[in-house]
Amino acid sequence: MNNTLLVVIRSAPHQGVRLRESLDALLVAAAFGKPVVPLFMGQGILALLPEQSQGAPGQKATLPIIHMLEMYDVETLYLPIDDAAVRGLDDSQLTGNTKQLDPNEVQALFQGAEHILVF
């Protein structure tokens, strides 16, 4: 966990540019060559639904950015197990290499990160 940047994504797609601007920060951090750990928390989990598309007039899709993460060596997408369960979602319904964390693992992620950005 040394020198990792934990980026917490909490916005669902198409709430203005909230999710896009969160993911932009994630991408820039990853492009810096820093180990970046993304945690999709709360509504942020909805960014990982594989069938989403572009939004109402002119809202660009954010799913392509999620798909780009792997190219930047961001391989595992973390999410709190409770946040997925409350939305009735499991790994098979989400895109990317997701890993569900129990409450203790979520706390450990925060404790272990060198830097944290919460969006």
């Binding site: 940047l5 932009d24 920060a25 820039v28 951090a29 810096f32 820093k34 830097h115 950005l117 919460v118």
Partner: peptide, 18 residues
């Protein structure tokens, strides 16, 4: 300035408060 500046500040400063 670019978003990279934020990441640099995080590297360089003792504390970044949001």
């Amino acid at each position: 300035t670019g978003l990279g500046q934020l990441l640099e500040l995080q590297q360089r400063c003792d504390r970044v408060i949001t």
